[in-house]
Design a protein around this nucleic acid. Structure first.
Length: 705
DNA sequence: TTAGGGTTAG
């Protein structure tokens, strides 16, 4: 029942140009038997009560059921006057070409096949009797090359020859359009088909789902349902994917129920689509149930469930499932490695990533563009941007995502010059930058103080590259100005933006105000943030801090009162470190670990050493003193505990990799910088908002975040 | 003849 309400809502809220079906009427007949959770289905057949409705009443043209065949051109009329012997020669010549085209396609030589087709095109149409198998081969060639011009040539040729495709070839032609992304033509072809079978419907719906027009896919699915007494398991798999695309679980559940009723859940594709749908719609437990019930767990099934866990942030679970997959003996493919490398990035697990990298190469996927991009991202996020560069340079093919990943990698390491050079190289090699590229290159300019170049690129975004600057690009520019202390200019940029300022833009201004100690403008930005998201705890904290810093103690007290009234409290911050393949999590003031005494001893020693280097605790200037009764709670302690633990348990030369649940505070940032200096260790921290690489007494963020 | 899972930014 849920589903139909859901779908009704989707369809009625969408801007469909021609609402074919009134969803409420359509589903009113069917909603009763779809109660998935209770696994209870009414006996009434889904299709027994077809709703009578008129196409014309709905403002639609009736679909021609049996169009009269297009009259064939009077073939041979002219050729009859031709010399008989010449015809035989021509035919032999042409049939040789047909055979050759089919052979080339079988060998995967699509370019050559289409080149040979040119000879047929240049010949007189009357002499050509290209048959179904040659057309089929040409279709394969066009699909293989995704050649729009090829599609047009084949179709044009067929029309000019007066060839009438049968059901099979019509479906193939439809597929050819779909696979080449020619959805408008495909739809027209489909609408004009005199006969449609299950394959025709599946092909067009599949194409629509692939193009991301999920609502339209549902709309067509309903019509299909009405026209057929059967829908295939492939249809279910596609529609489940459409539900996943819409991120709506109720239609997905109802399709699951329907698939169960029609015994389609044994189909491996349906199961995999269900796993993916449930995990993308937020129900990883349901995804796991479907996976557990799969009679045969395939590579795709494993990949789907691992990706599901990864998506939900259950990185350890994802990693465990990956090892289970290995044990099960199922083949791993490039999808598996792409997913698992991304999990390693989240876990900051160098050991696991190295193994995954080795596995990628060993299994023969060393050249895969996606897995390599994930690998580059891993290396650059964890302080090894040159390794990322090596992977990048060895990639035989690159796409905009791989360029973006490396540009962002350099930017995050404070290597703005390299990031801009890479951006320029990307353009010169003919790649088209997208909004992510600009985000990466502008933030790199900001980090590295390349303000002039940053402005040039920002200004060229729309003018040269036709990419409209979004709020995040504006936030980058606010940060760029803010770093230089140009706070009024930053404020003017926000004020004059062609859209309502967003949270990120105010947050960027607030950071600038904090660094440059402009409390008046900072208070303004903090109040804006607070006004936009009054329920968000961190906004109270920044407001509280800025009041404290600007001596507005009365206002600060009022913020604390509001916090208390709302019962909001700081969640315990946590930091995570991976030592010898084993993850360890530390909370603020954590005393649970078996080595607690050693850890605190080491921490005490480190604090003494960094004090000698000039470290003075920052007190509470920017800490959240939310509750006076909890003054002892050291909110920023977890990273220091994790570092102390890391220093005890690792060898001297290895960098320490930390992940934090929260944004690193001012005081901890100073402390870690000196801890890295004193311990002569590189410490890499990925906090809730950005990346910090501490080395030789400096941080890649330039002490600005 | 048609189908399922992956990478950057946020």
């Amino acid at each position: 029942m849920d589903m139909w309400v859901g779908l009704d809502h989707i369809l009625s809220s969408s801007r469909l140009s021609c609402p074919l079906i009134e969803p409420r009427i359509f589903f009113g007949e069917r909603d009763n038997f779809l109660v998935f959770n209770q696994k209870r289905f009414y006996k009434r057949s889904l299709f027994s009560q077809k709703i009578r409705w008129s196409f014309t009443e709905q403002g639609l043209k009736p679909r021609p059921k049996h169009q009269n065949p297009v009259p064939k051109p009077l073939k041979g009329e002219q050729s009859a006057v031709k010399d008989q012997a010449e015809m035989i020669v021509d035919k032999n010549f042409s049939s040789g070409i047909y055979h050759k085209i089919e052979k080339l396609v079988l060998q995967g030589k699509y370019h050559e096949a289409l080149e040979l087709f040119e000879i047929l095109e240049s010949e007189s149409m009357e002499d050509n009797v290209v048959d179904k198998s040659t057309y089929d081969a040409l279709v394969r060639a066009c699909i293989g090359l995704k050649s729009i011009s090829g599609v047009k040539r084949v179709l044009n040729y067929m029309v000019n020859c007066g060839f009438e495709p049968d059901q099979y070839l019509s479906n193939r032609l439809l597929l050819m359009h779909v696979k080449c992304g020619m959805m408008v033509d495909a739809r027209k072809l489909f609408d004009d088909m005199p006969e449609r079978n299950l394959v025709s419907w599946n092909t067009i719906i599949g194409g629509i789902v692939d193009s991301g027009d999920y609502l339209e896919a549902f709309r067509l699915f309903f019509i299909m349902w009405d026209e057929f007494s059967d829908v295939g398991s492939r249809t279910f798999a596609m529609m489940i994917r459409a539900s996943a695309g819409l991120e709506l679980i109720s239609p997905g559940r109802q399709l699951h129920s329907l698939a169960l009723k029609l015994d389609a859940t044994d189909d491996i594709y349906v199961s995999c689509a269900l796993i993916d749908m449930y995990s993308k719609c937020g129900s990883i437990d349901d995804a796991r149930c479907v996976f557990d019930e799969m009679p045969e767990k395939t590579t795709v099934g494993w990949n789907s469930i691992i990706a599901g866990y990864a998506l939900h942030g259950y990185s350890e679970e994802a990693m465990n499932m990956y090892y289970d997959m290995q044990d099960s003996g199922v083949n791993m493919d490039h999808f598996t490695f792409s997913i698992i490398i991304r999990v390693c990035t989240r876990l900051a697990s160098v050991e696991h990533a190295k193994q995954a990298h080795a596995g990628l190469v060993r299994h023969g996927f060393g050249l895969d563009i996606v897995a390599n991009t994930a690998l580059m991202d891993f290396y650059s996020k964890w302080g090894r941007v040159e390794d990322a560069r090596n992977v990048f340079e060895k990639m035989p093919q690159k796409n905009v995502i791989s360029w973006n990943a490396l540009i962002a990698g350099y930017g995050n390491h404070g290597q703005g010059v390299e990031a801009v050079e890479l951006f320029e190289r990307m353009i010169s090699e003919g790649f088209v930058p997208n909004h992510v590229t600009f985000l990466a290159v502008l933030s790199a300019c900001s980090y590295s103080g390349l303000s002039d170049r940053g402005w040039e690129i920002f200004e060229s975004m729309n003018r040269v590259y036709k990419v409209k600057p979004r709020a995040m690009h504006y936030a980058c520019m606010v940060e760029l100005l803010g770093r230089e202390g140009l706070l009024d200019e930053a404020f003017a940029l926000i004020r004059d933006a062609p859209f309502e300022p967003t949270l990120n833009m105010w947050a960027a201004l607030l950071t600038a105000c904090r660094v440059h100690k402009n409390f008046v403008l900072g208070r303004f930005a903090a109040e804006k943030l607070y006004g936009m998201e009054p329920e968000k705890l961190s906004n109270y904290v920044v407001l509280l801090n800025i009041y404290n810093c600007s001596g507005k103690f009365q206002e600060a007290a009022s913020v604390i009162q509001t916090l208390k009234k709302k019962g909001l409290r700081m969640l315990p911050a946590c930091t995570w470190i991976d030592i010898k393949k084993q993850p360890y999590v530390f909370f603020s003031g954590d005393k649970c670990h078996a080595q607690t005494d050693q850890i605190y001893e080491k921490l005490e020693k480190m604090m003494q050493e960094i004090s000698k280097q000039g470290y003075v605790p920052d007190g509470k200037s920017f800490l959240a003193d939310v509750d006076e009764e909890e003054e002892e709670l050291q909110l920023c302690h977890s990273e220091k505990l994790a570092i102390s633990f890391g220093l005890i348990n690792t060898v001297d030369s290895t960098p320490l990799h930390l992940v934090q649940s929260h944004r690193i505070c001012y005081d901890c940032h100073n402390a870690i910088k000196l801890m890295a200096l004193v311990a002569k260790r590189e410490i890499v921290v990925r906090d809730a908002s950005r990346f910090h690489r501490f080395k030789d007494g400096t941080c890649s963020c330039g002490d600005y975040w």
